[in-house]
């Protein structure tokens, strides 16, 4: 077990640190030691910081919008009184399994400013005068973020549903006997009990949402004019694009390391807060 972890998780991480000091294309031995020049290039690259900012916005939206909404949906779909909840759960989960490339094309057709039905609807209702180009430089980022929330919602929902199972029935019953209403039960019974696993879910959502590569690539490829660029598409374009004459694996590693370290520091800053929440739950 430890071996698996060391071999397939720790070792690749350490190796990618090592490779980030080379000008290397990923094949054969890495010999061209360039010191910190890859790092210097990453740190000075404005497109990198722009992409980084966008990645961060993606996770902000996931944490502030997707997580609470999914929790509400989970509480609703956990209720035994709701008939058909199994079906609803499946339906809300379906976007997760829908092929990302297909999502790219469906939304492109739906949101098309020339005859797409969303725009037809908006103009016929009179909400807008002229069609909105949803994937244009000005609107692309919020549009892609919204689609990302839609697609990732089912995952967070399942996490929350599992978390809600830690709440023993008798606690609910006790709350009922005490005369607590729905909101009070949620605040004083449900939330405290699911807090430790909630902290884990927060971490997972943060980590997942920082790397929305497939969806961005399928919808905009980071454009137009880099408006939706995230770190993953940046690395891909700068280092692995098949049209490049030579992939820059060392540079990709450096960009990944910088990104990883900063997100880690950001997580660590939240650490004390998270730990308190976590410990409050686990006795």
């Amino acid at each position: 077990m430890l071996l698996l972890f060391v071999a397939f998780t720790l070792w690749p991480m350490v190796a990618s640190w090592w490779y980030s000091f080379f000008d290397w294309d990923g094949v054969g031995p890495a010999t061209d030691w360039v010191g910190f020049s890859n790092f210097a290039e990453v740190l000075q690259s404005r497109p990198f910081w722009h992409a980084f900012g966008n990645s961060f916005l993606f996770s902000l939206v996931a944490i502030c919008v997707e997580m609470p909404l999914a929790l509400l949906a989970a509480i609703l779909l956990n209720s035994r009184r709701l008939r058909g909840r199994n079906l609803y759960r499946l339906l809300l989960f379906l976007p997760v399994v829908t092929t990302t490339a297909v999502i790219g094309i469906v939304f492109a057709i739906m949101l098309d400013p020339a005859g797409g039905f969303v725009n037809d609807l908006l103009t016929s209702v009179g909400l807008v005068d002229s069609p909105i180009t949803f994937l244009s430089e000005s609107y692309a980022l919020p549009t892609v973020m919204a689609v990302d929330v839609w697609k990732g919602f089912g995952i967070t929902l399942v996490y929350w549903l599992a978390a809600l199972q830690t709440v023993p029935d008798d606690l609910y019953e006790a709350a009922k006997i005490d005369g607590a209403n729905g909101r009070q039960t949620l605040r004083h019974v449900t939330l405290p009990v699911i807090a430790p696993i909630g902290v884990v879910i927060l971490l997972l959502t943060f980590q997942k949402s920082m790397n929305p590569f497939d969806l961005v690539q399928a919808m905009t490829e980071g454009g137009p004019n880099h408006a939706t660029d995230v770190v993953a598409t940046y690395i891909y374009r700068y280092a692995f694009d098949p049209y490049l004459n030579a992939p820059r694996y060392g540079f990709a590693c450096a960009a990944g390391v910088v990104f990883g370290v900063i997100t880690l520091v950001m997580t660590a800053l939240q650490g004390p807060l998270l730990r308190r929440q976590y410990l409050k739950g686990s006795r």
Binding site: I105, L135, G223
Partner: peptide, 22 residues
């Protein structure tokens, strides 16, 4: 230009628009 042209990443978008006579 046809609105949204700058957002197209899949070539199919443009030749489909042409084939549809838009």
């Amino acid at each position: 230009m046809m609105p949204g042209w700058e957002t197209w990443t899949d070539t199919a978008r443009i030749y489909t628009a042409f084939a549809k006579e838009q």
